[in-house]
Each structure stands twice: as C-alpha cells, then as structure tokens.
Design a protein around this nucleic acid. Structure first.
Lengths: 143, 143
DNA sequence: CACGCTCATTAGCTTAGCTAATAAGCCTGG
DNA sequence: CCAGGCTTATTAGCTAAGCTAATGAGCGTG
C-alpha cells in the first residue's frame, strides 16, 4: 500500500475523525429516543446477559457512578429490570426487560439509518476496510 | 476479502467501537489540560487560519452557541486571540495566539501518547487499515 | 430608511462524564 | 465470633459538551 503517514499524523487524524464522527452519531438519535450511551449499555446487557452494575461499567469503560445514572434512565423507561444477587446482598443483577429486548429488536430493523445509509454508499472494498478497522478500533478501546 | 458482515452488524459494531474509543480518548488528557474538544477546535484554527466563530462551528460540526463556549475556554487560557472583522462589524476573527501555537507544538511532541503507543503496537498492515479507515471515517463525519 | 436577515452571544436545559463520600454487606484474623 | 477492613452501589456535587430559543448588534436591500 502506498498510504504512508507519520505516526503523529495518523494519531491526529484518527483522533479528530473519532471526535467528529462521535458527535455526528450522537446527533442521530431518532428511534425510541435512546441516546448512543444508553443504547450501548443496553446492547452490552443483551450480549452479556445478567450483569452487575460494576461489570456493566467495566464493559462500557465508564466509572460506576456514571453507570448508575445510565441505568437509572433505562429503568425509568422500563427497559431493564434488576434482581437481587443470589448470594451477595451488595450486588444486583441487571437484565434487559422484555420491553428492552423489543426496543433493541426495533432498533435492529431501523438500526442507525444514517450510518447504515452512508456505509451502503461505500464500495465493497471501502466497506471491507471499515469492517477490519472496526475490529481494530474495538481492540484499541478495549485497552 | 473474506471479511463479511451484514450492514446492520457492521453499523452496530462501528457505532459501539466509536463510542468506546471516544470515551477512552477523552480520558487521556494530560498535557496542558486541554480537552479533546478544545484541542480539536484549536487545531482547526491552526489549519484554517483566521476563522469566524460560525466558520469554526461548521468545521467542528457543532452549533454556534456550543462553539462560543469552547472559544471562551480557549480564550481564558490565552490560547486564541480575536480581532474585529475588517468589513463586517458583526463578525470576529479567531486565530491561535502565539501561546496557542506553542501549546500545539508541545502537543505535537507528546501527542496522544496513549493512542500513538497503541498504534505503534500494530502491524504495518493493521496501521495501513487504520490509515485508510481514518480517511473513510472523516468522510462519514463530513457528511 | 425600515424591515428582514445574519452573526455572536446569553440563558437555560440535558446528557455524560468525573471524584469523593456514604451506607450496606461480605469476609477474615485474631 | 466479631471488629475492622474491603467491595459494591449509590448519592452528592462538579465540569464539559452538546442542544434550542431568545436577544441585540450590524448589514443590506426594496
């Protein structure tokens, strides 16, 4: 590949691209009025099954008090339910409620119309780049 | 390429990766105490030269009142200076101050240590993927 | 030259994140 | 077997980052 960029340049460009794209994604929050943050947490719960707040905060790379707030919003909407931990009285288990799962399925249909539409406009090769980049970005975010 | 993913799946993974990586980037704000948002705006000013608040808000994909706040923070720190527009009394021209440029150069040295370190651990091919993906993400963010 | 537009800002709100402090529950060492 | 220390979740209180609506100043045109 001829693409050559200094590490500094790449870093800068990637950071700016992430910053702007993130802003853009947050602007698109039509269905169900869930924010990107809330959606991400709910998705983690669907994938991870019943998680404690701490586990969820770790999955989302957020501090526990931050997760408390996110969870509170999701609970207000009845999208998750909490059950006591079977053996540890301090802990609590969070799961998507039936309604929460229904919302996620709704999303899966209308999912991210804006981004999906954009990606549909890409060439197969570009999409392929994005696919592989997404995996790399996940690795970056995971630490 | 063998990587195959449904558009929905790709969309979801990309969104989550962006969300988490963005959170991660915001956690790393050591040098000079500039946030990612402030740094991005200051960088736009360095690249774009003297811009009006409106132009800067468009470059950063943010509403004008949001940019007013970001600019105020940068001004407090003496990192940008404002001069009256030569022909239009409503407008104002923003530029990085000498100190602002110095801070950016500082950054350029210590730039994004965490991300740069991570990228350095990638293979050449992976870096290449990220390079090309960064360009695609920029295009996505640009609309 | 009055009216309508644009620009920047202010006011006021929400979301999203943080740290520090608190209360409850668990567990272990003496 | 229980006192003290750790872990978990939450509360309190802060900042940053975003938005919309409203305001006031200045421009420009019919």
């Amino acid at each position: 590949m001829v693409t050559q960029a200094s590490p500094e340049e790449l870093t800068e460009r990637l950071r700016d691209a992430i910053t702007r794209l993130n802003r853009r994604l947050r602007q698109e929050r039509p269905v169900g009025d869930l924010t990107v943050t809330q959606l991400s947490a709910l998705t983690s719960l669907r994938i991870g099954g019943a998680l404690t707040p701490r586990e969820l905060s770790e999955a989302e790379r957020v501090q526990p008090p931050t997760m408390t707030k996110i969870v509170a919003k999701l609970e207000e909407r009845g999208l998750i339910s909490r059950t006591p931990h079977p053996t540890d009285g301090r802990q609590v288990l969070l799961s998507p409620s039936e309604q929460g799962l229904a919302v996620l399925e709704d999303y899966q249909r209308v999912r991210d119309e804006w981004l999906a539409g954009k990606l549909a406009g890409f060439t197969a090769q570009e999409r392929d780049t994005v696919v592989r980049a997404a995996a790399l970005l996940e690795r970056l975010a995971r630490d």
